[in-house]
Simulated assay, not measured.
Amino acid sequence: MIPPFETTFAVPLSCEDCIKDVSSSLYKIDGVHNVTADLPTQLISITGTAAPSAIVSAVQSTGRDAILRGSGKAEAAAVCVLETHASSVKDNVRGLIRMVQVSPTMTILDMTLKGVSPGSYNVTVRETGDISQGAVSTGGVWDAVAAKQEKRSIKGVFGTIEVGKSGLGTVFITKPIQIWEMIGRSIVVSRKQDSFDKEDPDTLVGVIARSAGVWDNDKTVCSCSGKTVWEERKEATAKGML
């Protein structure tokens, strides 16, 4: 059983009716226990066991967008943006994996792929974070050698994602691992088991990085670019970000 966890999202809200509209949509999702919203900060907090991707979809169904601002406790969340290294692809972002550690022995993984060929995709964490040559340079599957010696399941094998004809695939799973073990490693998502091809547009890679915990990130304007979070979001989605 997954313990409840909290996530916060930035959502454009202009009035109390907006809050009611979004909240009503969120409560239709299985696993949403509580929804609270703050109009001045434009933030919505959700407690429960629902996948963050399902929450974003529910908010978008109301005609609004949602940006994940934090998940779980401080230093207990991570993210991996998946990209193809194929030179033939213009907008190379093809997937996103959100990770939240909800207990000392459980991390949930919310994985989404978009714009890839239909089929079954293998998801593995690799030994290194070197993605300079795509999947080719990421090394072997993390923990594979130790797991074989100890005769147990491999921590770095996250299973598969099934992608339909629309090019979209999602999966929400749990693994008995901790966030700190994965930071700086890479993830490979591919229809191949190994012997990866850098020019395969359906072989995706990304580095696992820490993500903000709940209430750790309340910025509305980037100090580097001066752009609002919504301007950054528009540019990111144009490049394929989910």
Rank of each mutant, 00 (worst) to 15 (best):
E6D: 10
A51T: 03
V125E: 02
V214W: 15
G31A: 02
F172Y: 15
L39S: 05
P12V: 08
V189G: 00
L109R: 08
V214C: 11
V157I: 11
V116S: 01
V89L: 03
I97S: 06
T36C: 05
S88C: 03
G159I: 00
S25H: 10
V163R: 01
Q133P: 05
V11R: 06
V89C: 01
V145E: 14
G240L: 01
I108V: 15
S120N: 04
E199N: 10
A135I: 00
V32G: 02
E127T: 05
W142D: 07
G159W: 03
D143M: 12
K165T: 14
T220Q: 13
A76G: 15
A146Q: 14
G184F: 06
L204M: 01
Y27V: 04
V79A: 14
T220R: 10
Q178V: 09
A66N: 05
E75R: 10
L82F: 02
V79Q: 15
A76C: 14
E75V: 05
V205D: 02
C80P: 09
I2H: 05
L68Y: 04
I67C: 06
A212C: 12
G48N: 02
G134K: 01
I19Q: 07
K148P: 07
C80T: 13
A212E: 09
M1V: 15
E16H: 13
Q60H: 08
G213S: 08
S23G: 15
D194W: 08
D21A: 07
T41D: 08
S14M: 07
W215C: 12
E235G: 06
V11P: 09
